[in-house]
């Protein structure tokens, strides 16, 4: 297998692999309507099987697919427009939204630390999972500056995003949450971009609020984690 480097380890192939497997994932998801068959999961499984079968190192995949990964940054910036379009709904709700996401962010981080401590996993892994509700580019930089492993963070973020998108709408129905703002805000806070994609299917307002929530959660969590660590270290809990 000398040919595989020439054939597969280049950007055009890796980019086709990512978009092609995602397309197939979307098709399967639409056909089966089965929540666990999220396009991201199907795409992930296809790519990993392929790389393993042909023994292609992760580094070559990362280098080849870098353009698509880069798009996460501009996509977060573009949420500024989504936010602007729904500005009318923000008026009068800003304070309650800041409170809701702020408390959600702190409870999210603290619950990760508590469950992690109880189950006895290493601090490095706990730090990697703390920003799990924040969108990938933000979560990876939070993880890096707080002693986590960015690659592990990226995986957890995607998994939590899929879980949130999958169970979010059902959970809100069970809890009897009627407010469209509360629905969008909570899905975006827990499941970032993947939750927002789901929230946009429910409605434009839910989607936009969810988009706003990604940003709020990102800011709140990047502030909350260093402070929680500081308090934890002070009392020798961490």
């Amino acid at each position: 297998m000398i040919m595989k480097e020439v054939l597969f380890e280049n950007a055009p192939f890796m980019l086709s692999l990512v978009t092609g497997s995602f397309l197939l994932g979307t098709w399967i998801h639409k056909r089966t309507k089965f929540a666990l068959f999220h396009p991201c999961i199907i795409s992930m499984i296809i790519i990993i099987c392929f790389l393993n079968y042909f023994d292609i190192p992760y580094e070559s995949f990362a280098a080849g697919s870098n353009i698509i990964h880069f798009m996460l940054g501009p996509a977060v910036v573009a949420l500024g427009l989504v936010l602007y379009d729904q500005m009318a709904y923000l008026k009068g709700n800003i304070l309650s939204m800041l409170t809701a996401v702020g408390v959600g962010s702190i409870i999210g981080v603290v619950s990760v630390i508590l469950i992690g401590k109880i189950m006895g996993i290493s601090p490095e892994i706990i730090h990697s999972v703390e920003p799990k509700s924040v969108t990938t580019p933000i979560a990876m930089s939070i993880s890096q500056s707080n002693g986590g492993i960015p690659a592990l963070t990226a995986v957890t973020v995607v998994i939590c995003g899929i879980i949130g998108a999958m169970i979010g709408p059902k959970l809100l129905e069970m809890l009897g949450i009627k407010s469209k703002i509360a629905q969008g805000l909570s899905i975006g806070a827990a499941a970032h971009g993947l939750g927002t994609a789901r929230a946009m299917e429910i409605g434009a307002l839910e989607g936009a609020i969810s988009g706003l929530s990604i940003g709020l959660m990102g800011i709140m969590t990047s502030i909350a984690i260093p402070i929680i660590h500081y308090i934890g270290n002070y009392f020798h809990i961490l």
Binding site: M97, G108, V112, I115, K132, S133, I163, L175, A182, A191
Partner: peptide, 26 residues
């Protein structure tokens, strides 16, 4: 096991807390 448990439990928790606070203040 711990990673799966953390992911599911905290995701449910965050959704519930954020939605509850927002709904109550409205």
């Amino acid at each position: 096991l711990p990673l799966t448990l953390i992911s599911v439990m905290t995701t449910v928790l965050v959704i519930a807390v954020v939605a509850f606070i927002q709904e109550q203040s409205e």
